[in-house]
Amino acid sequence: MKTDTVYKKAFNRVAHMMRDGQLAGQLPSENELRRRVGVSRTTIRKVLEELVHRAMVSEENGIRAVGRPANDDDCYPDAETTPRATHVEQQFMEWMLRGDTRPGTSINELDLARQFGVATNGIREFLIRFSRFGLIEKRPNSGWLFKGFTEDFALELFEIRVMFEVRSARLFSQQPDSSPLWAKLAALKLSHIELLEHMESRFHDFSRLDNRFHRLINEASPNRFIDDFYDIITFIFHYHYQWNKQDEKQRNQAAIVEHIVFIDALESRNAARIEIACRAHLDSARETLTRSLLVFDEIPTG
């Protein structure tokens, strides 16, 4: 049976809002809650039904209110709220970081499949996709080889990223009021504010939020080549960012503030304001990447 990732992600989002005090007492209307979460009315109704079933929400005479306290155990696990390809990508990046993976490291499909809890064909599809960029190479007999990447490679890629994202930001601001992108953007803004309020304990969560934000911007200009390109963008930039642990919390906090400024600019629909906010954030991202590349080069290989 196909996993209902949209519903489960929405359920987790509402549960987190309850846990963090964003929802207290009487709940807002279905339409308002749907807008804040960024999902359809059908999905939010399904979420509310399950919350009532679990006694996390009480319902009397058509009025819903927060019930028992929500906790992390109430939420669906990450593996059930992300598509298989995204799950494999996240697990692979974490595996590389935990193991201090360096150029020349061998990659075994079966071992990774067991560690990630997925079928080997899911691992193979992921590796094939990235092998086109020259970062991973299939070995003649069996297995794969991580080849690594250079500063020139990453910076050239960044130039393309700037062109794509500035264009997408402009197109985003031209979306009609009826576009679902605005509800998604509003929900993401709340996620940014929530994370900013809990930076002391949750600053590591920024990587995923950053990915969600930039992918949403690119939804304004659907293009299969841009979507494919952004897979490698995510891999390289987040991979290098996480090598550099120096001032990680402060860097993530600054990036969240830049995102919020960017979101405000998009909501203003002012073209000049949008371009300034977009380029300012991308300039910071380039600087962070450059520093991370230097740290990466300094890490001992043996």
Rank of each mutant, 00 (worst) to 15 (best):
A154I: 01
R139Y: 02
P83H: 04
P176C: 06
L145D: 02
N71V: 09
A65E: 06
D73F: 12
S106N: 09
K138Y: 02
V162R: 15
R170E: 14
F133I: 03
E125C: 07
E89K: 08
R161I: 08
S178L: 10
R161F: 11
P176T: 03
N121I: 13
T86R: 11
S131T: 00
S142D: 12
T86G: 12
A65I: 00
Q90L: 12
D100T: 07
A65Y: 00
N121D: 14
A169F: 09
I160E: 11
A65H: 00
F133Q: 10
V118C: 11
L127K: 02
E125D: 13
F146W: 13
G117W: 08
P69Q: 08
A119G: 12
M96D: 02
T101P: 01
R161S: 02
V162T: 08
N141V: 12
T105C: 15
F92T: 04
D72R: 08
N61G: 14
R114M: 14
G122H: 13
A113N: 05
A79L: 08
P140E: 11
L110C: 09
V162N: 05
D74H: 12
G104K: 11
R161L: 15
G134F: 08
P103I: 05
D74C: 13
L97E: 05
F130R: 04
I160W: 06
E156C: 06
Q175T: 01
A70P: 01
D78Q: 01
N71Q: 08
F164W: 07
G99P: 04
E137C: 06
R129Q: 10
V118R: 09
T105F: 15
P77K: 01
A154L: 04
Q115W: 02
G99Y: 07
A169V: 08
T101C: 15
E156P: 00
E156Y: 01
I128Y: 03
A113Y: 07
L110W: 12
I128M: 12
G99H: 14
V166H: 11
E109D: 11
G122S: 15
R124D: 10
G148H: 00
W95L: 11
T150Q: 09
S173A: 15
R132E: 11
A85N: 03
I63W: 00
R129I: 02
G62Q: 03
S178R: 14
A70Y: 03
I128T: 10
G134C: 06
I123E: 03
A85Q: 07
E159K: 13
E89P: 00
E159D: 12
F146S: 01
R129P: 00
V118A: 09
D152K: 06
W144T: 01
A79V: 11
D74A: 09
R132I: 04
A113F: 09
G134A: 09
Q115G: 06
L127H: 00
L127V: 07
A169P: 03
R167A: 14
L171H: 12
L135I: 15
A70K: 02
F133G: 00
